[in-house]
Amino acid sequence: MSEKKKCDPRVFQLSRRKALKGLAAGVGVLAIPSPKASASVWESFFQKHFKELSKEDLPKVLARMEEQYSREYGRPVTVKATPHIEGVKFGYGLDLSRCVGCRRCVYACVSENNQSREPQIHWIRVVRLNKEKGIDLSEAEHYYNPREVPEKGHFYLPVQCQQCENAPCTKVCPVQATWRENDGIIVVDYNWCIGCRYCMAACPYGARHFNWRKSRIPTDELNPDTHYLGNRPRPVGVVEKCTFCIQKTREMPGRYPACEEICPVGARKFGNLLDPESEIRYLIENKRVFLLKEDLNTQPKFFYFYGS
């Protein structure tokens, strides 16, 4: 839907982006390649926006990245750009009556999606709330660490990107480096992002994260199965976020996202909103469903529900 607004002539986009990139370099977040930089560094600096890459250019870009990452991590890394599947709009369900706050999803996400270990980046946050107070986020506790969960009197609310249909983050991006794909996944082109972090300020869910420093991932922990718009290693100075594990889910057949697979209590549900037989449709039609910050009209495709 928002695609129509993308009417800026390419020339304007490009020049504005360069200007901004220069600006960012000025504050030391990003720098223009040094004169001694290799050809591939320069190539990536002038690379086109993902959506404007031609059929001929895309494989070249992917191959260049594969080579670069494989060299950097000393093992074969693949980078794919699998497109959306026709007739699919992804939705996610989370059963608040089941979640025990064990945080296994947080760490499964980190390793599947190559999040930085140091400094630490977590795409999923689990907050603890009081049963008596209900959903009162002024009571949210992020750092609970008891011996065992669940704890008496508490329940838990995991938060990650809500993949909004009406996403505030994509609208504020000055260079359109982030957008909603046809299957509903909000993605970032890390090669296009200038690191201005407007999107982080616009996101009401705190679901976007900035790479202040070069991410550190031990080589043997790197997930080498990557997607251009998802879990490929990120450069410093860009914003990243949950993509419903685009590298796993956009396949025929497609696996479930890592957070769903790890959940020991079965609180996480995932599927195609357009398929009436999917578990996500069943829960929306049959269970009590909540949206986070519904009043902002962001129209999340992340549905919290009560299974019992």
């Binding site: 946050r125 986020l137 996101c203 869910y205 039609e285 519904e294």
Partner: peptide, 22 residues
Amino acid sequence: RIIILLKLSVLGIVSAGLLGLL
């Protein structure tokens, strides 16, 4: 700051239909 700002609000099954998908 962010998560503290979050507020959960009720959504009737009806408004799930808002998405126009169901």
